[in-house]
Amino acid sequence: MTLSVILLMGALALGSARAVSTVAFISNRDGQTQLYLLDVDHGVVHNISRKIDDDSQLEVTTFSWSPTSEHIAYIGAARLNFDLYVLDADGAELRLLAQTRAADVRPSWSPDGAALAYHATTAGLNNDVFTIALDASTPRNLTRTFAGDNHRWPQWSPDGQQIAFYSDADDALDIFVLDTMPGAAPRNLTNGEVFARAPDWSPDGARVAFNTFGILYTVAPDNRHITELLRTEDGFRRTFWSPDGTQLALSWSGNLHIVSADGSHPPRQLTEQLTVAEEITWSPDGSRLVFSGFTASGSRDLYMINADGSGLRRLTTHPALDMAPAWRP
């Protein structure tokens, strides 16, 4: 075991004081897209990906930390198959949970870390929303009897009682919320008012952020009230809530911006002269952000910046593509 690996594993073992400096990310620096851990304070990088057998290395497409930070769920591709795996945070054990047949799945953990929600491609190339418990062998299809062909991007609510997703069930792309109890019927939160996608719960569960053609909205699940927060010309794909729920981070026009969650302040631009990818993560205390950015030379590395826009620092300098950072909870 190398000294750098020993240092990183020691940092992970020290608990919350060190865990807040750990970021997972995807990179092709070893040839295939694999999963790495980075200690942002010391620059130590460690590949935690594992082979599924002697010949096959999984290509990681998306991933997410468990709320307890003990596990990482990710979509791994091998031999043209896309499956849902759970990996111990130290890389010690890898388990296959379910087949997804879709590369763009972003698994969502239940708040207690006992189950995962995800979408998978089913017969007829439709997409349905599933949940599976870590100790179960059979996934549960939540949208099998629901109208429409594509139900995607499920996100568990902070209280664990609901799952938000977007769907074409009502002949448009809408945000739906489904109670997790068996037999519950999905509720349409947007009712065709906007072209909605990529739902993202606020930390308190009172609002769901989503976007459509460069416009940022939130909707309240209890009364379906929709609020427009931001309108851009260039568009963006994802938003990222701050841990306290007062702000959202996003990338548009190639720069990192912070938007007030209640619309009370104009957006703040934190970066310039650096093309920010649509992959941003807040530190658990909300004081810093890590993101993937392109330089003028075309390299893609990880950067860190304070939430007030100060202290921009480049974290990785590898010529490969470093992307999709996610801070350890």
Rank of each mutant, 00 (worst) to 15 (best):
L142Y: 01
D179A: 15
R152A: 12
A136R: 14
A172Q: 08
D204N: 13
A184I: 13
P182H: 14
F146S: 11
A198R: 00
F165M: 14
A198L: 07
M181D: 10
F195G: 05
R144G: 05
Q162I: 03
T138C: 06
A172W: 00
V177A: 09
I175N: 07
N191V: 04
P203M: 03
R207W: 05
F146D: 07
R140W: 11
L142I: 07
Q161G: 03
L178R: 03
T143L: 09
Y166K: 06
F176H: 14
T180M: 15
A184P: 07
R144D: 07
R197S: 13
P139T: 10
D204G: 02
A206H: 10
A172R: 07
G160V: 10
P203H: 03
T180E: 15
R144Y: 05
W153C: 08
S202E: 03
P139W: 11
D171G: 03
A185W: 14
Y166A: 13
H151S: 14
V208C: 05
T138W: 06
G192Q: 08
S157H: 02
R187K: 14
I175R: 04
V177W: 04
A172H: 04
N191M: 11
Y166G: 08
P186L: 12
A206N: 13
E193F: 03
L178E: 01
P158I: 03
A136V: 14
G192D: 09
L173S: 11
G192V: 02
F195T: 08
S157N: 04
V208W: 04
Q162M: 14
L189P: 00
L142N: 01
W201T: 00
W201G: 00
